[in-house]
Amino acid sequence: MASIPGNRYAQDEKRRSADHVSFLKHKRFRYLWVALILSLLSIVGYAFIDQEPRPNGGSWYGYTLGTIGLLLIVWLSLLGVRKRKITEGQWSLKAWTSAHVYLGLALIVIGTLHTGFQIGWNVHTLAYVLMLIVIISGIYGVYTYATLPSSLSSNRKEMTRAQMLEALTALDRQLEAAAQPLDREQSDLVIDALGQDVFYGGALARLTGAYPGCKTKRALKRIDPNGSEAEARVHTLLSKRSDQLAQIRRHLRIRALLEVWLFIHIPATIALLAALLAHVVSVFYYW
C-alpha cells in the first residue's frame, strides 16, 4: 500500500486532460513546421550553393538531399510496422501519422531538388515518379481522412456492421412469411430479392454505391403498395429492406473510399523501395 506513486499518475492526468485534436493539428502543427523548415532550408541551399558543373544528384549537395530523402522514405514506410507492432513505450501513432503526412509532403521539395530537374527514361526517374505517385495517393488519403469520418458516423446511426446485417436478416425472415399469400409471379419477385447477394456488383459498385439490377428495387416497383393487404405489407417490408441495404452499401462505400487509395499507396511504396535500391546501387556502381 505504502508505495510511492510513480510518474504514471502524472502521466495519466496529463493524458486525461490532453487536448483532443486530429493528427493534422497534432501539437500545434509541430511536424508541419518541421517539414516547412526542412523544405525551406533545402530550397535556400539549392539556390545559394554553387553546384558544379550544374545542380545534379551527383554533387555533394545532391548526395546530401538524396540521403535525407532516402532516410525519410525508409522511415515513412515504417509507419506500417509501427501501426501493427504494439510495443510498450511513449509513442503515439497519431504523432507518427502527423509526421508521416507533413514530412511525406516535404519529400516533394527534397526529391525534386535532388533530381536537379534532370528527368529522363531511366531507373532514377522511375524512383522519382513512383515517389510522386505515393505522395499523390497519400494526399488523397489525407483528404478522405479529413472529410469522410463524420459521414461514416452519421450513416451508422449507432449500429454496428453486425447489427446492420442482423436487421437485414430479420427483415428477410419477415418478408418470407409475409410473402406466402402472394401469387406466383409476385412471390418470385420477393424470392429473387431475397436470393440476391447483398454484396454483388464488385469493387465498382462498392466504390460508387450504384447497384444497377438491384432486385429489391425491382420487386418494390412491381408490387402494388395499394393492392391487397398482403401486397401492402410486403411492399412496406421491401422498402424497409431497401433502406437497410442502402445503409449497408453507404457504409461499405465510405469504408472503401477510406481504404482504396492504400491499394495504390502501399504497392507503390514497395515498388519505390525497390526502385530506390536499384537507383542507389546503380549510382554507386557507375561512380
Binding site: R16, S17, H20, F23, E88, S92, L93
Partner: peptide, 30 residues
C-alpha cells in the same frame, strides 16, 4: 503495468480515440 499507457489511445492513427476523466472533460472548452 504497460509503459506508455493505454494502447487504444496510442494506436489511434488520427487522434479519434481519447481517454478522459469526467471532471476534466465535462467543461465548455473541452
Amino acid at each position: 503495468g504497460i509503459d506508455g499507457g493505454p494502447a487504444c489511445v496510442r494506436a489511434c492513427p488520427t487522434g479519434a480515440a481519447i481517454r478522459v476523466s469526467p471532471d476534466k472533460f465535462l467543461t465548455f472548452t473541452k
